[in-house]
Design a protein around this nucleic acid. Sequence first.
DNA 1: CATGAATGAGCTTTCATTCAT
DNA 2: AATGAATGAAAGCTCATTCAT
Lengths: 214, 214, 214, 214
Amino acid sequence: MRKSGTQSETFNKIVEASLQLFNQEGERVITTNHIAERMNISTGKLYYHFRNKEEIINELYHRYVKGMAEQLSAALNHNNSIEAMVMAMEKTLRHIWSFRFLPKSLPSLFCVNPQLEEEHQQLSRGQLNSKLGQLFASLREQGMLLVDDQQLAHLVQHFQMVQTGWVNTIKQNASAAELDKLIQSGCRSLMFLLAPYVSPRFQSPFERVFSRYA
Amino acid sequence: MRKSGTQSETFNKIVEASLQLFNQEGERVITTNHIAERMNISTGKLYYHFRNKEEIINELYHRYVKGMAEQLSAALNHNNSIEAMVMAMEKTLRHIWSFRFLPKSLPSLFCVNPQLEEEHQQLSRGQLNSKLGQLFASLREQGMLLVDDQQLAHLVQHFQMVQTGWVNTIKQNASAAELDKLIQSGCRSLMFLLAPYVSPRFQSPFERVFSRYA
Amino acid sequence: MRKSGTQSETFNKIVEASLQLFNQEGERVITTNHIAERMNISTGKLYYHFRNKEEIINELYHRYVKGMAEQLSAALNHNNSIEAMVMAMEKTLRHIWSFRFLPKSLPSLFCVNPQLEEEHQQLSRGQLNSKLGQLFASLREQGMLLVDDQQLAHLVQHFQMVQTGWVNTIKQNASAAELDKLIQSGCRSLMFLLAPYVSPRFQSPFERVFSRYA
Amino acid sequence: MRKSGTQSETFNKIVEASLQLFNQEGERVITTNHIAERMNISTGKLYYHFRNKEEIINELYHRYVKGMAEQLSAALNHNNSIEAMVMAMEKTLRHIWSFRFLPKSLPSLFCVNPQLEEEHQQLSRGQLNSKLGQLFASLREQGMLLVDDQQLAHLVQHFQMVQTGWVNTIKQNASAAELDKLIQSGCRSLMFLLAPYVSPRFQSPFERVFSRYA
DNA sequence: CATGAATGAGCTTTCATTCAT
DNA sequence: AATGAATGAAAGCTCATTCAT
């Protein structure tokens, strides 16, 4: 049906409407009918573009991962300053927030969609994980972080867990102002994870940035 | 109908069967029909004891929280040795594991059952959180942890996030042997969170225990 | 089970509780469970006294008819004064009101309980009807009403229809004060049916009573 | 889903099948499943067109009221002859008969569907009532009826009550022949209500028609 | 491409009634 | 007499998905 390369405008609109509804109402309560209704299109049209609801979620998941990978790549390219690092963190949290239904729903989706679980293993726990590992390794090389390989692996894992944990602490629909605050405190939370391993040389700039997020 | 105080045998059996099915298959795909069928009882019987599926989940959630609180209380009473602490961690992870459907499903349940979300705020993010805070504070008093109040608050939060994150990394049905290993690595992961704040005096026993979990 | 002669206290209490609930909430939404719950007895006890819900309704129907018959007999014994007639009307309307669920539910019950329909034919459209006919005939003999037999039959029918129609115009739960007013206007309505046939001799006392109900 | 304005063929067929079943078997015992089964359609199809059984009943109620209003309007336009009046009565009774489940079920439905009760207040006791009042008023102007305003109001009310009472006296499934007779006697019954107020000028034509219905 | 009516399996829930105790 | 847990048929309704047009 859909040509996998070209993503028609409708395709994109469906994905975006779904994202919005999933985030706002919860993926679990949003049916394909809701999505079509919200978009003022027929269910048939929706099913022309997607074989089923799962496929929409898959697409969203891929977009989520892609965005995460991009943030990480960007961070890798600006890994020389702590400020830049934290900016990247902020952008990452914002990105996670914009796909917030995923951390909430993924664990419960796996029993329905095992293929998604596998992909999640490969992408999040695989690709993204190793990218984050690279980032931390480069920070180590820069002398920013003092960690051995084991510690680095733990940091990576915890970093991801705290990111996920962070979204789940937030209520479904926060205002823009609230969100800003929450992103700040999320960054602080993540920085706190790294704090013990920041090298003395970078201690003071780190503290400076950290205190800015108080 | 059912007296809410007395918990009949059937009541308990329904709760236990539900827990097993939820853990094994995922709460999302288990219907009240499945539960009744598995137990070889009529749906009517199930609905005589519970108004609906939500109520079963609520009951399970309360049992989960109760167990967590008990572990924390026990830990508070044996907070003098690192060994004891880690034993408590193990037991806690085992307990979480036995209710593993909850960390997976809770976030997606909130949109369906907002009352549960509120309770979660009060119980997990409230009661359990402060209990864990007390535990860490007592460790600080014992001279085990060197942390200021802010750090303590972060530690509490991260500790919980890593616990939750840990269950979600595990595939639905792990064998007993796999589980043991996973519990070990979970403990290591949690210890790693505390590691930077362990006081020099307790460094060496901490290391000893830590390495045992390698 | 129940000895048909002796009506135990429980039996009566069930009937009375049912009547109250049927009147207040509507027979259609009141289940046997509701009745037992309201009475703080077990469903088993209820079913010891009544084979089923139908039987409770039958009993209520019989009490209703019995009451109606009593009112009519009383009226027959005091048929010399218009005042007495209207007093009887009032009492009758009050009685109908106290069984108000019946006129509302009977027509819809017949498809479920055809035996009840038959009884209704015999009792209401039979026994009560002829009693009311007798009453009107005696009024004719007294010179109060000037009607031929055909007119009398019509009057009887209309009288019953207006009584029934009257209850159905009233909302389920009227206050005592409202009820008093409604009874007044119900009497007026019934008197109006008879008005054209009141003999000149009784015109003025009739008018006097009628105007009192304005 | 369904556009509320356009009434598709299926929509109409569902309404008609429901009416037939409700009339024949009683609304109370007819479920949406029965309707779908009878029509050889899926329950899903039925629920695509109606949110629930209530909505079907609402639709039927509106059709009933619309028909009543039409009969009354027609009567108003041909109010010069008694013959025409009685023809209108006949048509009205036939219409009521074709919706006979309504007078039987409405009173018992109100406790389940309070919105319907409100509509009934506004439509039957409001709109239809005043239309009938207008009709009688125009008959008064024509010199056919001699009534004051109070009497007119009572007549209106009684007329409606007798119409309703009439349907309820008839057993569920009367043959066409029986029905014709019943309609005749219904008309007679209604005429009898008016009889005392027919002006001398119209007495003889009235009697003529009345006797024809004997 | 698009429509939207239709499907139908299956979910949650109710309730009159039974029955072992 | 009484209990109250249990039954089970059946009701109302949903929703992912299909398919004729």
